[in-house]
């Protein structure tokens, strides 16, 4: 592999851009393909499928074997609410290999003392999420119980097609949330993508147990079900 290609792969990863490295096994051909340059590529169909599946693959084309190294952005968990559950979730998410960011405009909650090992942003979600470029490789968990904070995050997560959107709160709380989202013009299919009450039903009681149930649900959404765009295709 040429050194420049490796450097470009690493830059794309840092910038959360999907890229595919196409390598012929005889060493004759090697190129980087991005979703922008995909259309003109001779292996367009295989590369497109590999990007959608998020999986590297070996393919044959006109008698030559090519390996497609698929690099999609690492999965990131954005937590709205610097609360007790978030404190428990942060180390678990890191162990499981996820990037995690916590957003909470309440400066008394969003302190580095409470969250020594995770990025905490003391801003409103509507300010911070757009520049963060949440995408379909992002999971959003709303933990504040406060519609002023949670709702704008949910709206943006739905528009960004985040692969996992969860919101804490009882069925009654969620019922009111659904009414507010409907009033904002979100349809049934959109609203159905919000997992509420949040977390797998493992009978979780403590904040730590709830964090386990949420992390389990995120992994389920990531691994077991195809991404929404795959279903669409």
């Amino acid at each position: 592999m040429r050194r420049e290609l490796l450097a470009e792969l690493n830059v794309a990863r840092r910038e959360r851009r999907a890229v595919v490295l196409v390598s012929s096994l005889d060493g004759a051909v090697q190129r980087l393909v991005t979703p922008d340059t995909l259309a003109g590529d001779p292996l367009v169909e295989s590369i497109d499928a590999a990007i959608r599946a998020g999986k590297s693959a070996l393919v044959e084309h006109e008698g030559t074997s090519f390996f497609l190294t698929v690099q999609v952005p690492p999965v990131r968990i954005v937590v709205i609410g610097a609360v007790h559950i978030s404190q428990a979730l942060a180390p678990m998410a890191r162990l499981a290999g996820f990037d995690m960011v916590i957003v909470d405009p309440r400066t008394a909650f969003a302190t580095t003392e409470r969250f020594p090992d995770v990025q905490v942003i003391a801003e409103w979600p509507e300010t911070v999420l757009p520049p963060m470029k949440i995408d379909r490789y992002t999971a959003i968990c709303c933990f504040t119980h406060d519609p002023k904070i949670d709702d704008p995050a949910l709206e943006q997560a739905l528009r960004a097609e985040c692969f996992y959107i969860g919101a804490l709160g009882s069925r009654k709380t969620h019922g009111k949330r659904v009414e507010r989202l409907q009033a904002k013009g979100f349809g049934e299919a959109d609203i159905a993508r919000i997992r509420a009450p949040i977390g797998l039903d493992i009978g979780a009681v403590t904040p730590t147990e709830i964090a386990v149930s949420v992390l389990g649900e995120i992994i389920l959404a990531l691994r077991k079900k195809p991404l929404r765009t795959q279903v669409a295709s």
Binding site: L6, N10, R13, P74, L95, G97
Partner: peptide
């Protein structure tokens, strides 16, 4: 902890550099 692709490809580039 398991090394992620970030670490692996980043390290490869650092070695080359």
């Amino acid at each position: 902890m398991l090394a992620s692709d970030d670490d692996i490809l980043g390290q490869a580039e650092a070695w080359v550099t």
